[in-house]
Every structure is written in structure tokens, then in C-alpha cells.
Design a protein around this nucleic acid. Structure first.
Length: 693
DNA sequence: GAGCACTGC
């Protein structure tokens, strides 16, 4: 692998790791840098997948579906599209598509392939992700895209007629959009026998994938013309190295201490090489780092201890990838952010795992240790536990997600019988029915479960959760689309606040500067207004504990939503500060999440106050108990909300996070009369009770 | 006074 990068030259860029060809590459990897085209060609031929070039082309020619089982590093993603192009699959204006679950993978793979082909990215080889279409209608023959984008394309071109071959990469990850895509592609195949599918999958999934795509009818030989209906399976070996696995001899009681002591004994006994530890969350990571750095008997000498989690500032994350100084050992303590998408620029990785995860996930983690040379993996659970207790795979997203978006997407594509749809992993009928109920309540499907016109089609057109889309539609009636679109954009990013360890108090104070009595949604508008007035200044964000990158993204999403709104005939209009209409529009989307305050314990006990700080805490901890109108579920306002401890009588929420309690995140106060105003079909006029569905 | 993480249009 190191042939892509010479130490001491330019620092390699970190890229998606899944394909051998793109493990490390730097911007200087062009013909002018001394690596000629011939060299790239040689590298291509050295990839494991090269041996199977002819076989792959033969199978694609003769089979409707080819399943390529490829280990990490086989080169399948970068090479197969090129082989197909070389064999003529992109002739006559046709396009070869290759989908990825993640944006970063799309960009890096596309740029690698354009380099290998010696063409400008965006010409013959291009890519499309949300907000970025680097393709040319005339020139692009190989197109990389996220599976979500391909699904959107189907709304305009249901048969995906411009593609000759569609390669679905990383199908084993079973992401929601990959699964929907696979189900739809199977349907398309029936209408377009000339279309070829290449499904790239991990070993364990290959058989079930093959039987899913096997459309050959028993006892009928209709295969004399056209490709075989029975999928072909081809295995391509990877280039990973051997990883030795060690198990705990008996169950560990305190896994953080166990992780720390394992790190220390590896440091004492093993030769050079870095260590990657997986823990569950930020708190555990902080605790482990504390333990490691306070161990002062001298053993920690030579250890560089680094945390890694998504909330960490980018600069701190980058530290993880800087080369380890000679004579030192790097210990990266990470959440599962490091499980799939990153390859650490280290010479060797040793790996500790904390259960429970799935077996597949554990294998993936162990694989991290064998990326660049043989490694070792220390599992902090017993072998019996691995064998008998851990589930084989994670549950596909399809079977654990809210399906409202999925259902409306399928409806928009003309799939009427959702319950009968052929999924690679069927969701439970209950989950589907729940989704249909919500869509019915929103007025986007009718009594026959058909999309309503225009609302249903409009909601399907907007790339957001249907409840958010409905809120945007409603804003047209209330004359506040500009404000509501801003709220929708903020709700679709993780968090607009900049949180870091040790600055919680400052963040809370900053929030107070923007806090609105009406709740979080109106607070978002205040933050956005400040951001715009500052001239979108990063300095302003920094001073106010606002996440600059999140705000840039909010702006980008806002622009996209404004364009879509205009196309749908929604007038872009500001209500000039009239927050009541904004709140009504939000309620029109989220009326199903309405809650009423049940108990409010105000801290009136002065004596408790005076006894001890601990008890003061107790007195404050009585956050108001709410119950959802729909199902009388007990919920509480999340402490990150500006309405925490304010406890308005009636609220609606955007989402729930379940821990020891159910916490409402992003909460807004409402007037209960609005519920019957915006959703009379859902709430009975006389009393706020759920309408039986 | 809470907090697993990640991905996508």
C-alpha cells in the first residue's frame, strides 16, 4: 500500500478505505509527479480483482445480476466500472452507475478513477451527491453517486433508462436507501431485461442477496434469449493481513479499567505498533483517557493518548492521523466512528472491543488491525460470549427505523402495495402501518392509501422527513415560508451549537442570548438572524458557541429548499417577526407530537436548598412530566432545550431521545386550540384526545 | 442537568 505514498514527501490525505486503490493517495499522484500513467496501469493490474476481469465481464454479459463478494482492498469499486467501460457498456450514450452509501466514498472513488483513466473529473468520470453534481450530460460515461441520489433520480426517470449497468456497492451494509434501491432495481429488471446489476456484498450476505434477485421461474426455460435470471456469484479475495484474535478468559466487570490495563500491558510487552480502542461514548472515552494519563508509574512513558469521536473539533480529530513519532506508541480511544470509514495512518493497529455489538461489527473492527500489516485484536469478552451471545449481524436499518420517508418515497414511485413490496429485508407490517397512519394524519395519503394531490406529491418532492415537509407546505398558507424553511434546515443538521468539553457553562450562557420564550424553533431563527447579520462570520459563530460548519450547511440546505419550494408553487415570504404564524405552521407538521404538562414540581423547598449542593440538585431535577396526547406516553423536556425547566403547559417536539427517560428534543410551546385548527381530522373538537385510527 | 455513533436526499 505504501507505494502510494513515500514518507517524507507530501502528507497523505485520509480517504475512504474500502478499496485497495484508494487507501492512501495524495494530490500529487499524477503523471507530472513522477508516477507515470504506465505506473498507474501496473498498479491496477496488481489489484486482486484484476485476475477476475474476464470472468466478471463474462458474467455481467450473461447474467442479469452478478454478485461480487469482495473483501476490503480487492479493488472492485474502482476497477469494475472501468472494466465495464472498456468492454463497451458505456457505448451509445449509455452510462455505468456505481452507488455508494456515503458521500465521501463517492467523491474519493470518482476522483481516483478519473485519475487512473487520465481524464478530468466531471468529464468522462463524474459524480453526483446532494449539492454537488460533477457530471457532464454529454461526456460522463461512468458516474458515481450515493444511493439516495439514485433514488431521487428515479422520481424523474423510474426505469433509470440512461444506465446500462448499475453497480450497488457496499450492499451488505444494509442501509435504508440501499435496501429500497435493491427492491426497486429488482422491479426495474422485469421491465428492462437489458439492464445489468452488479451487487457488491460481503460474504455472509451473498447467498440471501442471490436468492432475492433470483427471478427464474421454476420449470420454465425462458432463458434462451437474454441474460440468465439466476444471479451469478463471484468471490474476489482481499488484501487484508492476518489478525490474531485474543479473548478475555472470563467476563470483565469494568470494561474501562479492563481496556486501560490491556493497553498498558500491550505497551509493556508488545513491540512497536499503535493501539485502537473502541468504547461506547464520549464519557467512557474521557474516563479511559483520565485513567491512562494518571497512571504515573512510568509505564505511560512513550504513550500518546488521543480521543476520537464525532463531536471532537476537526483539528483534534486530525491529530489521530498524524504519524507517530519514532519510539512512541499512539493509543486512539474511539467511538465506532473508526469502525468503518477511516483508515488510520499508522504502521500497525491493535484493537480492543467492548460488547455488545454484532459479530459482523466485531469482525469489521478486528479488520481495522490488519489494514497495513498483521495485527492483533484483544476482545474484552469471552469466546463463549462471542459464539453464543452475540447476534450475527446488526439489524438492517429497514427493520428498526421510522418508515414514513420510505413509504412516501415508494408511493411517489407508484408502488401502491407497500405491504406487498418485495424487500431484501422486510420491515414489520406494524412499522409500515404506523408509517401509513402518520401519513394519513398529515393528509398526504387518502383513504385508499394513495398520495393526495397536490399535498402528497409535494411532500414526496421535498427531500426531508414528511412532517418537516408538511410544515413547509403549511407555511405557505400562513405567509411565513422563509422562517419555516430556516427552521427545517436547522432541524436537518445535527446541532447548530458548538459543544466541547469544559465549556458547557459558556454554551448555556450563549444559548440564553438567543433563547426565545416560544422554544427552540424560534431560538433557531434568532441564531440564524444573528449569523446572517454578522455576514456569515465564523468569528461571530466562535464567539457565540455556534457551530460554523453546521450553519454553512444550514445555509446550503436553505437554498436547496427555497428552490424546491418555488418549483412547488410556494411563495417565499417572511412574516416579519410574527411568531404566532410560524408556530402554527410548525404545529401543522408536528401536531402528532403534542404533549400536555402533567406535573410540575417547582423547587419551593427552601430548606432543601440550604442543606447541601447535592440536595439542591435534587430539588432542581424535577423536570416537568409531560404526556403525549396521542398515546399518553411519559416524556420530559431535554435539558438542552431552552424550555428546560420552563415547562409550558402545551408543547410539541421534533424528536425523542430515549435513555433512562424519554426526552423531547427541540420543543416549542403551543396553544392547544391550534391542534384542532391544523388537524381537525386528528384531534376531536371538544376534547384533546386522540382520534381512533 | 442529559449525552452511543454514523449515514443520506
Amino acid at each position: 500500500m505504501s507505494r502510494f505514498w513515500k514518507p517524507g514527501t507530501e502528507k497523505p490525505r485520509l480517504v475512504e478505505d474500502e478499496e485497495g486503490g484508494v487507501l492512501f493517495f495524495s494530490a500529487s499522484l499524477t503523471s507530472s509527479s513522477g508516477y507515470g500513467y504506465a505506473n498507474l496501469e501496473k498498479q491496477r493490474q496488481r489489484l486482486p480483482v484484476y485476475k477476475y476481469r474476464t470472468a466478471i465481464l463474462y458474467l455481467v454479459e450473461t447474467h442479469a445480476t452478478t454478485i461480487v463478494v469482495g473483501e476490503t482492498g480487492s479493488g472492485k469499486t474502482t476497477q469494475i466500472p472501468q472494466y465495464l467501460k472498456e468492454a463497451g457498456w458505456a457505448e451509445g450514450g449509455r452510462i455505468i452507475a456505481c452507488t455508494q452509501p456515503r458521500r465521501l466514498a463517492v467523491q474519493t472513488v470518482a476522483s481516483r478513477v478519473s485519475e487512473e483513466m487520465g481524464v478530468r473529473l466531471g468529464d468522462e468520470v463524474g459524480y453526483t451527491i446532494r449539492f454537488e453534481d460533477i457530471t457532464s450530460t454529454e461526456l460522463t460515461r461512468i458516474k458515481f453517486l450515493t444511493d439516495g441520489v439514485l433514488l431521487r433520480e428515479m422520481m424523474d426517470d423510474p426505469l433509470l433508462s440512461k444506465y446500462s449497468v448499475i453497480m450497488v456497492d457496499e450492499a451488505h451494509e444494509r442501509s435504508l436507501s440501499t435496501d429500497i434501491l435493491l427492491g426497486l432495481l429488482k422491479k426495474i429488471q422485469r421491465r428492462r431485461p437489458e439492464l445489468r446489476l452488479v451487487i457488491s456484498s460481503a460474504t455472509i450476505e451473498a447467498k440471501s442477496m442471490a436468492s432475492f434477485f433470483n427471478t427464474r421461474r421454476q420449470g420454465r426455460d425462458d432463458e434462451e434469449h437474454g441474460p440468465k435470471k439466476e444471479p451469478a456469484i463471484l468471490s474476489v479475495e482481499g488484501r487484508g493481513f492476518n489478525v490474531q484474535i485474543f479473548y478475555a478468559e472470563e467476563p470483565v466487570s469494568d470494561y474501562i479499567r479492563a481496556a486501560v490495563s490491556t493497553v498498558l500491558s500491550i505497551h509493556d510487552e508488545e513491540p512497536s505498533g499503535d493501539i485502537l480502542v473502541f468504547l461506547t461514548g464520549q464519557d467512557d472515552i474521557d474516563a479511559a483517557i483520565q485513567l491512562l494519563t494518571e497512571d504515573s508509574d512510568g509505564r505511560k512513558k512513550g504513550l500518546i493518548v488521543l480521543p476520537l469521536y464525532s463531536g471532537l473539533p476537526r483539528a483534534d480529530q486530525d491529530l489521530v492521523f498524524s504519524p507517530t513519532p519514532r519510539g512512541k506508541r499512539k493509543v486512539v480511544i474511539s467511538t465506532n466512528i473508526a469502525e468503518t470509514s477511516l483508515t488510520l495512518e499508522v504502521t500497525d493497529i491493535e484493537n480492543l472491543v467492548v460488547a455488545p455489538i454484532s459479530k459482523a461489527s466485531a469482525r469489521q473492527r478486528a479488520g481495522r488491525a490488519g489494514r497495513v500489516r498483521p495485527g492483533k485484536c484483544y476482545r474484552l469478552y469471552t469466546e463463549e460470549y462471542f459464539m453464543n451471545e452475540m447476534s450475527a449481524d446488526g439489524i438492517p436499518e429497514m427493520q428498526r427505523s421510522n418508515l414514513v420517508s420510505t413509504v412516501i418515497q415508494l408511493k411517489a414511485l407508484g408502488i401502491d402495495n407497500i405491504l406487498g413490496f418485495d424487500w431484501p429485508a422486510s420491515p414489520s407490517p406494524e412499522a409500515l402501518i404506523r408509517a401509513l397512519e402518520v401519513l394519513y394524519a398529515l393528509g398526504v395519503i387518502d383513504d385508499d392509501a394513495k398520495l393526495t394531490s397536490p399535498a402528497g406529491f409535494q411532500v414526496a418532492e421535498i427531500p426531508l422527513d414528511p412532517m418537516v415537509s408538511k410544515m413547509i407546505l403549511a407555511s405557505n398558507d400562513y405567509g411565513c415560508s422563509e422562517e419555516v424553511i430556516t427552521i427545517a434546515a436547522v432541524l436537518s443538521v445535527q446541532s447548530i451549537w458548538f459543544s466541547a468539553r469544559g465549556v458547557q457553562k459558556e454554551l448555556d450562557e450563549a444559548k440564553l442570548r438567543f433563547a426565545a420564550a416560544e422554544g427552540d424553533h424560534v431560538t433557531f431563527l434568532n441564531v440564524h438572524k444573528g449569523f446572517i447579520q454578522s455576514g456569515k462570520s465564523s468569528n461571530w459563530c466562535h464567539k457565540n458557541h455556534v457551530n460554523y460548519h453546521a450553519m454553512k450547511k444550514v445555509d446550503e440546505i436553505r437554498q436547496q429548499l427555497r428552490r424546491i419550494a418555488q418549483r412547488l408553487g410556494i411563495a417565499l415570504k417572511s412574516c416579519e417577526g410574527d411568531m404566532q404564524v410560524v408556530r402554527k405552521a410548525v404545529t401543522a407538521g408536528f401536531f402528532a407530537n403534542a404533549c400536555r404538562l402533567e406535573v410540575s414540581i417547582v423547587s419551593t423547598c427552601k430548606e432543601i436548598f440550604d442543606i447541601s449542593p447535592f440536595k439542591t440538585k435534587l430539588a432542581f431535577s424535577h423536570n416537568g412530566l409531560y404526556k403525549t396526547i396521542r398515546s399518553s406516553q411519559e416524556v420530559y423536556i431535554h435539558p438542552s432545550s431552552v424550555l428546560f425547566r420552563v415547562n409550558p403547559k402545551w408543547v410539541i417536539f421534533h424528536s425523542i431521545v430515549s435513555t433512562d427517560r424519554q426526552y423531547m428534543r427541540n420543543v416549542m410551546s403551543i396553544d392547544p386550540s391550534w391542534l384542532t385548527e391544523v388537524a381537525p381530522q386528528f384531534y376531536q373538537q371538544q376534547q384533546i384526545n386522540p382520534r381512533p385510527l
